[in-house]
Amino acid sequence: MARTHRIPRSRKSKQQTKVRTTKGKIIEHGDIFFFYRPKIDTEEVKDIESVQRFYMVMSPENSHLHRIFLIGQKQLPEIIEGKSNSEERNWALNVLTSSNAEEIRNEFLPAEYLTETRGSRRIGAAVPVGEGKYSIVEHEGHSELAYILELPEVPGPTQREFQIKKESSYIVSVKNPDIQVPGYSAFLKRKPRYPNSLKEKFGNRRWINIDDPHLLDYENSQLLLIGARKNDVEEELGIDIDEEKESSRTAELFNDLKIRKDQVPLKPLFKGKFPSKEEVPFAQEIKTLTDEEAPGRGGKVGGKIAASSSVSAASIAKVLSGIEFPKNKNQLIDYAKQHKDRISDPYSVIETLRELHDTRFENMADVEKALGEIR
C-alpha cells in the first residue's frame, strides 16, 4: 500500500561518498542498484526477452531510505550522442519506498500464486545486475541523474541488454500527478500522495526538475528519463563521484539491502553474464501472493504495470489495423510504432505489446488471446 507520509532520513554508518561540484549543484547522492526479474516460470534467462521486469534502486546517503523504481521497456534509455528522440526516453515508477531493508529484500524474493487455468505459477527472484554511486545534479536549467558503475567492474553482455553503462547521465523530470500527459494515461489511477508543500511545486506544469529529493520518496511518483551522456560524466557535469572498488565482501547490495548471497546468482553482478540454469541457487524462501497481489490483478511483484490493464482492445486493434500476418512480437511493435498517429496514447499500447510472449502470431485472434494472458 502506498505511503502517505514522508519517511524521515537518518544517518548511515558507512563512509560518505565524496562529491565535489564545480558547475552543477548536488541535490542528492548515494548508492544505486539494478535488478532484473525473470519472466513467469522461466528457469534460465538468456536475454531481455526472458525478463519480466527491470528495477533501479536508489539509496540516498545520510539515510536508511531505499526507493525501488520500475523502469519501462525493461532497460535504461539509449544514449545517442548529439541526438534526441523518443528512443532515448523512458519512464520510471516508484513501486516501493521503505527505510526497512528487510521489506526491500522481501520485495525481490521469488513468489508463487495460483491461477484457475494454469494452476501454480512461479515468479523468480530478482537478480542483481549492477551497483554503483549516483548523484542528482542541477545543471544548466535542468536536473540530471548521473551514475558510475562499481559492479561489475567492466560491464558485460548482461549489462548491455539493459543499457547499463560504466557511466551515464539522464535528464530527469518528475510528472505532475494531476495533469494528464500523452503516453502516461495508464498511470492516472496511480498517484503519489504528495503533501501540499510538494504539490505546490508543480503549479500547472506537466513536468518539473528535481529540486527537492523528497519528490522521489513517494510511491507512484513518476519520472521521465532522457539519455544525456555516456562519457566524461563527471567532467561534463562538474562533479567528482568517488566510486569504490567493491567485492562480494564490501558490496552495499549485501550490507545495506540485506540481499543474501546464497539466494541470488552472482554471475551478472561480478562477471557481467547471465547465469545458466545450474548457477541459479535453489530458492530457500518463497512467498505466496494473494489474489490481489498476483500478476494481472493489480499486484506489484512481477505483475503487469497499469499500462497492460488500461489499454483497450479497440486501441490495439486500431493501431494494428491493416497488418499482414504472420508476425512475431517485435514485428508487431515495429508496426505499432509506424502507425502510432492513429491513436492518442500509442506508448501505452507499445508498452503492452512488449509484454507479450515472444512467439509467432498467425492472426489477430492470436494477438487477442496473448493479450488476455497478460491482463
Rank of each mutant, 00 (worst) to 15 (best):
S10P: 06
S13L: 07
R20S: 15
I27E: 02
G30K: 00
K46Q: 15
D47N: 08
H64T: 04
H64S: 05
I68A: 00
I71N: 03
G72S: 11
I80D: 06
S86M: 11
E88V: 05
R89W: 08
L93F: 08
S98K: 00
E102Q: 05
E102K: 10
N106R: 15
N106C: 05
Y113I: 11
L114E: 14
G119Y: 13
R121S: 11
V127G: 14
V127Q: 14
G130Y: 06
E144P: 05
A146G: 13
I148S: 04
L151V: 03
E153Q: 14
P157T: 11
R160E: 13
S173T: 12
D178N: 10
A186P: 01
E200Q: 10
G203L: 05
N204Y: 10
D211N: 13
S221L: 04
A228S: 10
D232N: 11
D240C: 12
D242G: 09
L253W: 02
P275K: 03
E293N: 03
G299Y: 03
S309W: 01
A313K: 12
K318F: 13
L320A: 07
N330D: 03
Y335F: 12
A336V: 04
I350E: 07
T352N: 05
E355D: 13
N363S: 14
A365N: 08
A365C: 07
G372M: 14
E373M: 07
